[in-house]
Nucleic acid binder design. Structure first.
Lengths: 266, 266
DNA sequence: TAGAAATTAAAGGTTTGACCAGTTGTGGTG
DNA sequence: CACCACAACTGGTCAAACCTTTAATTTCTA
């Protein structure tokens, strides 16, 4: 970010839609949309920015926290407020969906069905579009899965990474984000039961079927293989952990440090 | 909500994960998850609640606005703060997705593809599960579409409602929410071009094909019909409005009063 | 008596100002 | 040249006050 901030942040208009804080959020969103703020950029200090926008600091903070709540901004005490960097695939915060699950009592099987639909579509697209590099990355993850048959935690990591590779190969970042949203929640419950998992070999086999269909550029087969894989995975999981709603439990996900971090940082 | 609030809101623990405001949000989310707060409930006044939780009012407000930003709470001046009611189908705020679209420059066609995947899956499920009432509702919307062939705005309303009926019939509220998220954004750009729409009769025809496949309990046909419908709709739209990223534009959606309201309130 | 209008209490929204607690970068010191 | 301490800076929190909007109450009128 250059030092020519003064020209970019203009005061809010008096005639606005909702509250002042909402207007701030809209203003900041607009700047992001127009590319005046880009991922990784640091916003001016709150005190300065508040003056530029013509509002008080608490009001500005309310607007900022709205954007922080949806994962667009991130504030670090003493450092500043930054536009969140899109590390790898852009991701939507799973918090709202998790919240909705709590409010309406979504069952685990309903989530699994959603994931199944999303991943089948993704697998089909991946079979049409995957590049050589992407297919190589998938193959590598499967190799790692076979190598981790007696290390369930490691296996699970490669499992998830394979699915992310497929999603990336689909070329559709929106579907990828939605899948991650759902998968993250299911992952939270799965990682507690994975220690007792025993059908890892079969699971690896199923993944290989998906991979081969993608490699063969056969969308229908990729969809079928993905469906079979997820159906079996669901059954295996439900046999250990009977039907229940997704738990918020120990992963408040308030700052994005929970499961998503686990998935990406390993 | 009864008058026994004092027992339900307990002060936050000193040793917390992140900031105090985040802890407030986590606390409130927990109460929602455990059912201590239910949709439609009104929270205690901010001043009282702040005292109960042992934090200052600005801090409490920061936590509340975080939850408001993701569509869980809603504050009305003079009235109070309420847990958002799930009117009909629960809905996820499209703001975050819209934001992500801005940040990463998603194209309209990428969104359309995501919608296509979601709606095909939904149509397939609806063909398996739709009840008589739900099918009747679909048929009614199609009738209205035929009756509105020379009123594009009205036609668009019934168009969207038909898709929501199908989604409801799918029985999967997560897929429904995800579809609404994507469809809402596409709707915002579509409603600007709909005035010049001319292929409404063909569109109604396509909807009828989807309906008939669902009525005949033929998932594969329903998926195909939905795909054909959306492919043509996309082409029709792109012919009028060439490829571009989804616009944030005049629909801040900061308070949910924009397109979603249009869809539901008419 | 019933309805409508004015009043009042209560709620969220905003502002000012101050202080605290971390981070960062710089400058001095070994 | 490396290391450490200090000072400036930044976000986080708190407090008290005032404004605007809403909703309920009261009061006045038909």
């Amino acid at each position: 970010m250059t030092d020519s901030n003064k020209t970019r942040f203009k005061a809010v208009d008096p005639e606005r839609h909702g509250t002042t804080a909402e207007e701030i959020a809209v203003q900041l969103r607009g700047m992001l949309h127009r590319g005046e703020l880009r991922p990784g950029d640091r916003l001016p200090p709150e005190r300065d920015l508040a003056k530029m926008l013509g509002v008080s600091r608490p009001t500005l903070r309310a607007g900022i926290s709205s954007l922080a709540a949806v994962g667009v901004l991130r504030s670090r005490p003493g450092a500043g407020t930054f536009v969140v960097e899109a590390e790898g695939s852009p991701s939507l915060d799973s918090g709202p969906l998790r919240m909705m699950a709590s409010l309406h009592g979504f069952t685990s099987s309903e989530m699994f069905e959603a994931r199944k639909s999303l991943e089948m579509a993704i697998a089909g697209l991946a079979a049409e579009r995957a590049t050589g590099d992407q297919m190589a990355a998938m193959a590598e993850e499967i190799t790692e899965m076979y190598a981790s048959l007696d290390e369930p935690e490691q296996f699970l990591i490669h499992d998830m990474r394979f699915h992310q590779m497929v999603a990336a190969a689909s070329g559709n970042r929106i579907l990828t984000s939605l899948m991650n949203m759902v998968a993250t929640i299911l992952f939270d419950v799965r990682k507690k039961t994975v220690k007792r998992a025993k059908d890892l070999k079969e699971s690896a086999e199923m993944h290989r079927h998906v991979y081969r269909a993608i490699r063969d550029r056969d969308p229908a087969a990729a969809r079928d293989a993905m469906r079979d894989h997820l159906v079996r995975a669901q059954k295996a999981q439900e046999s250990e952990e009977p039907e229940r709603v997704a738990e918020v439990s120990g992963s408040p996900n308030g700052d994005g440090k929970s499961s998503e971090a686990v998935v990406r940082e390993v």
